[in-house]
Write a protein that binds this DNA or RNA. Sequence first.
DNA 1: CGAATTTGACCAGCGC
DNA 2: GCGCTGGTCAAATTCG
Length: 179
Amino acid sequence: MPVMPNNITQEYSSEFVANSELDWISLLYGSTKYDDGNLASSSPSQAQIESELAEANPGKSKAKLVARTNKKANIPPRIEFHTKSATDILDDGYRWRKYGHKSVKNNIHPRSYYRCCHHTCNVKKQIQRLSKDSSIVVTTYEGIHNHPCEKLMESLIPFLKQLQFLSSFQNIIQPLHPC
DNA sequence: CGAATTTGACCAGCGC
DNA sequence: GCGCTGGTCAAATTCG
């Protein structure tokens, strides 16, 4: 099963482009789509990120940066991952609760809506297969997690406990060996 | 039995 | 104003 990055940030996205499982990424600042399927970028910051993505991803010409023409303010950034996978749900380390399932226009595959289970986190994601290519799973993240990845923490906890134990041990030894 | 998922209803935005 | 579409809610259902 392909594994998605643990923390979805703008900085992280260009790093993840190198993952061979990934087809391409779009950074979305909105959802305005035109009939021909194209999306446009407008703000300078988005253009800047787009060029950075292009530099980080020379072989993947499809990487696009998108602007939302929506008038609403404070729209969280959206990042779209295109992944070739037989399974719809990609393991990104976070726990998600499904809250919706909808068939969308011009696509035979329904779209699933998920929300992060963490009580203080409002990150959402949508999962949908491409109508043109059913092997491609499109995962769109909206917002940034404000908490650590649970799976990562689970694997780190034993190590941290060991560190804590060793540091307490060092506190006992240090008085005996000041150097 | 509690948690997670499913699914129909509802709402808001947009184009005509 | 109306219909279409996407997004969300919440009750019902399923699952472990």
